[in-house]
């Protein structure tokens, strides 16, 4: 590696430093004030024997209230961004987002049904997760059944659009029959996406599928480069395209469905962050994918900080990511002719 390459590939450090900064300052945001040195000390006291110089309220706020939410925002941000980046390679299209195969619509439908049936937190999350898996399985089945002759990628993307539309219709139908006094607003609010009600139990439930998906994608990350050249070429270079693509779809779907299950539908993160990461470190997935995870974690955490601090009440996170992401993405579009290169 030459110095120029090395310099570019080390720029992921900035994503890491940014994430660390946002992580620490996030503990100080909120109605209950906690001093910076107390935040560090409280966190450190979990690992090291430190005499408490802080109040028990401060410790409770930091560890029981803010820490689960901060970790959830980071996990969801990393999951959505990494799945988006992986899908952009697998489907050879920089405009693809993690819900291209219908996972968000499927999860939304599952959650809406569960709310309609009067289920509570865990039931809604399970239903969302299962709904997302069903939608992607349907898409994949249609895609591999029709895609064996002709362009498999194109068929799969089109199948995803159709499956997504069917599940969106399902969401509308559930809303239509929902009780306007209680279940309808609950469904609507859930679909807007928010981390306001996240608990440490939620965090523990989704951490395993998200982290294992993240590991699998990162193990396969160099092969993603090859898939972006098309099936025939990748195969001629020695890549078992079907297997790798299936592994990527399984990993990304697990991660996205888990994210949607605890946070609802959060738009644009999976589309915008991979492009930001490409501007920072270039298109090689070897460095791009880990950078995406760091950047996505930092981005969603920062937006979630805004969501809980901008107004007296919570602003739904999904609304903010879309409002902030859209102008951001437009700015990126004007840079496309520079080719995302460094």
């Amino acid at each position: 590696m030459t110095t120029k390459d090395a310099a570019t590939s080390f720029r992921w450090i900035w994503a890491g430093i940014g994430l660390a900064g946002v992580f620490l300052s996030s503990f100080m945001i909120g109605r209950f004030p906690v001093a910076p040195h107390h935040v560090v000390a409280i966190l450190a006291s979990q690992l090291l024997p430190i005499d408490p110089s802080w109040t028990t309220e401060a410790a409770t706020i930091v560890l029981k209230v803010r820490l689960p939410r901060i970790l959830s925002a980071m996990l969801v941000g990393a999951a959505l961004s990494s799945s988006g980046a992986a899908f952009q390679g697998v489907f050879r299209n920089p405009m693809v987002s993690p819900d291209i195969l219908g996972v968000a619509a499927g999860a939304g439908f599952g959650a809406a049904l569960a709310i309609l049936a009067g289920m509570s937190g865990l039931g809604i999350q399970a239903a969302a997760f299962v709904g997302g898996l069903i939608a992607v399985t349907a898409t994949y089945a249609i895609g591999s059944w029709r895609g064996s002759q002709g362009d498999g990628v194109l068929v799969m993307v089109l199948a995803g659009i159709i499956v997504g539309t069917v599940f969106s219709a399902g969401i509308s139908l559930t809303k239509y029959v929902a009780d306007p006094a209680n279940t309808l607003p609950a469904i609507t609010f859930w679909l807007m996406g928010s981390l306001a009600s996240v608990t440490s139990r939620d965090l523990c439930l989704v951490a395993l599928p998200i982290l294992s998906g993240l590991c699998l994608l990162n193990l396969l990350r160099w092969r993603l480069n090859l898939l972006s050249f098309g099936d025939d070429e990748a195969r001629a270079l020695g890549v078992d395209v079907r297997k790798i693509r299936l592994a990527v779809i399984v990993a990304a779907t697990l991660m996205t469905a888990s994210s949607v299950a605890i946070s609802g539908v959060i738009g644009l993160v999976g589309l915008v962050v991979p492009h930001l990461a490409r501007m920072l470190v270039g298109p090689n997935y070897r460095i791009l994918l880990p950078t995406c995870a760091l950047l996505g974690a930092g981005f969603l955490l920062a937006v979630d900080d805004l969501a809980r601090s901008l107004a007296a009440g919570e602003i739904p996170l999904g609304i903010l990511t879309s409002l902030l992401g859209a102008p951001f993405f437009l700015a990126l579009l004007f840079n496309i002719r520079k080719g995302w290169a460094t």
Partner: peptide, 19 residues
């Protein structure tokens, strides 16, 4: 390709069969 890989990135992809 859809992404602006460097020439060296593209050429090193030839190693896939051996990795």
């Amino acid at each position: 390709p859809p992404f602006p890989f460097s020439v060296l990135d593209v050429v090193s992809m030839g190693r896939a069969a051996h990795l």
